[in-house]
């Protein structure tokens, strides 16, 4: 466990670059996959693959709907496609992903760069805050959002090894390093990065580093805070969530995404059925983003470590109220 995320400055250390390099690494061993691009290989990180394996790189121009359904066709004849574009343009081809990929049960990997406010200056048109929700709603679609470059590398390999449709987010901005070489990404599994017994923070993507910051803030206040990395949003790690609910009794979810339909909703769906307890949701509150530097936007839209810590205090407050009420209503109450 490493509780101190380390900012690794240049855009060369972004999640999209990590994805691009992972493709090159995997391309050497695996000859059964190809990469599809819609004129933004420099933006998605796939330019590395294009340079190394030009015969396995297919350009579709600015035409994402065709590209997505073509991927279904490629998969049907045994070629595994990585469909790559910005997250917003994956949503443009959503219905193709639904019918020609998921409904047809094709082994297609959709990898989206530029999710969330992390996109920064390009503004709301490019800041996908809905993608996790809409792809999560497609039957059979696995949804992944890794937290740091090392995890992106491992997740890319894991989704390639998985047989079936996957949607994975990378990220545009310089990333923070969270994991060391000992980390092992496993599809469908979350990990406790920091243990604690009072409250659990569940996060994905860029919010994992911020959740760890929140954990450190809470520690200074004497509150024992558990931080969980949840890189697979679907299927979500039900077992781990129930364990955390039983051991900590309240939650904060944190995601660079609308609070509706993403990680927070996925966590709430599990807990509402299995182990109801207070949950606070950190995310964009049903609005579009705007232009600005990612860190400034994260502050404005209340996604940073201190805001997550604030949400954790609210969750703890609700848990305390609930416990008081339970004690009062108990026949054994004194």
């Amino acid at each position: 466990m490493n509780n101190r995320p380390q900012l690794i400055g240049s855009s060369g250390d972004s999640l999209r670059e990590a994805f691009g390099r992972a493709l090159v690494r995997l391309g050497e061993r695996r000859h059964d996959f190809v990469v599809l691009d819609a004129d933004i290989a420099d933006g998605t990180g796939t330019h590395h693959f294009k340079k190394k394996y030009p015969q396995r790189f297919f350009q579709f121009g600015i035409a994402e709907q065709n590209m997505m359904a073509v991927a279904g066709g490629l998969a049907s004849v045994g070629v595994i496609p990585f469909v790559t574009t910005f997250a917003v343009f994956c949503m443009r081809a959503l219905e193709q992903a639904r019918l020609s990929v998921a409904y047809a049960r094709r082994n297609v990997k959709i990898v989206a760069s530029h999710p969330g406010l992390d996109v920064g200056p390009d503004g709301a048109s490019a800041q996908a805050l809905e993608d996790l929700a809409v792809f999560r709603a497609i039957p059979g679609m696995v949804v992944v959002s890794p937290a740091d470059p090392l995890e992106v590398d491992q997740a890319t390999e894991a989704i390639l090894n998985y047989e079936g449709p996957v949607y994975m987010r990378t990220g545009r901005s310089a990333a923070k390093r969270i994991f060391d070489a000992g980390h092992r990404f496993e599809l469908g599994k979350g990990q406790i990065l920091r243990d604690g017994g009072d409250v659990t923070i569940v996060a994905c993507g860029v919010e994992v580093a911020r959740a760890l910051e929140a954990g450190a803030i809470m520690e200074q206040e004497g509150i024992s805070t558990r931080v969980v990395n949840m890189p697979t949003i679907k299927p979500i790690d039900v077992e781990l969530l129930i364990q955390c609910a039983e051991e900590t009794g309240c939650f904060v979810t944190a995601e660079d995404h609308n609070v509706h339909g993403g990680l927070g909703s996925a966590v709430a769906e599990v807990l509402a059925q299995a182990c109801p307890c207070p949950i606070e949701f950190v995310g964009v509150r049903d609005s579009f983003g705007e232009s600005g530097e990612p860190e400034e936007l994260a502050e404005k839209y209340q996604l940073t470590g201190p805001w997550i810590a604030e949400a954790a205090r609210r969750a703890l407050g609700r848990k305390a109220t609930q416990e008081r009420l339970i004690r009062m209503s108990s026949p054994l109450a004194i």
């Binding site: 297919f58 709907q65 065709n66 590209m67 997505m68 359904a69 073509v70 991927a71 279904g72 066709g73 490629l74 998969a75 049907s76 004849v77 045994g78 070629v79 496609p81 219905e95 193709q96 019918l99 020609s100 047809a104």
Partner: peptide, 14 residues
Amino acid sequence: GQGFSVAIGMALGL
């Protein structure tokens, strides 16, 4: 529209 693109993908993949 989608079956057309899928066919293109099949032709390309074959």
